[in-house]
């Protein structure tokens, strides 16, 4: 009899944990999207919690130090790491995204201190939501600078001749 009680107790805990996980996942899910996907979804994603990444266009960065309002545009880059590798690495992909004027772009507004790493051709990952006016309001802004991810090798020699 006692064993049965323990099995019920265990099942109860299991059920509670599953319930906690399911409800917490639903309440806190952030949809990971590229800018192309975001534009394709249109009004459907308005107000949803999103995590979007893109390449920062350096010419569009504006910062008002008084109101701490930062705005810039990001251009679409693929979300697939294998594709990025195939296209010649993150730095190259980001550069091409910014130069290519036909790419989908997204206007981002963020209130807060301007991050050190925010510069042209950085990869921005923004958490926030898109409003009716099509502007993405970011609550969280993460930046990656491609130069930091290059392989660490010293400068090559100018007068290099292979030894034969």
């Amino acid at each position: 009899m006692q064993q049965k009680k323990f099995i019920w107790g265990g099942l109860l805990i299991l059920g509670a944990v599953v319930l906690l996980i399911v409800t917490s996942t639903e309440a806190n899910a952030e949809y990971f999207m590229t800018i192309d996907e975001l534009k394709a979804e249109g009004a459907q994603v308005t107000g949803k919690s999103l995590r979007v990444s893109g390449a920062v266009d350096g010419d569009t960065i504006e910062y008002d130090a008084q109101s701490l309002t930062l705005s810039f545009e990001v251009a679409h880059v693929t979300g697939n790491n294998a594709d990025i590798e195939a296209q010649g690495g993150l730095a190259k992909v980001l550069h091409e995204a910014v130069v290519d004027t036909t790419r989908e772009r997204l206007q981002v507004v963020y209130v807060g201190a301007k991050p050190d790493l925010l510069r042209g051709e950085a990869q921005a990952i923004m958490v926030g939501s898109i409003s009716d006016d099509g502007i993405f309001y970011a609550d969280e802004l993460l930046l990656k600078c491609p130069t930091k991810y290059e392989e660490a090798v010293p400068e090559p020699l100018d007068n290099f001749k292979p030894i034969t």
Binding site: I21, T25, A27, N28, E30, F32
Partner: peptide
């Protein structure tokens, strides 16, 4: 087919 992440609030709540 949709990548969905959960942040710190998920862990805290659960």
């Amino acid at each position: 087919g949709q990548k969905i992440t959960v942040g710190p609030p998920f862990y805290e709540r659960a």
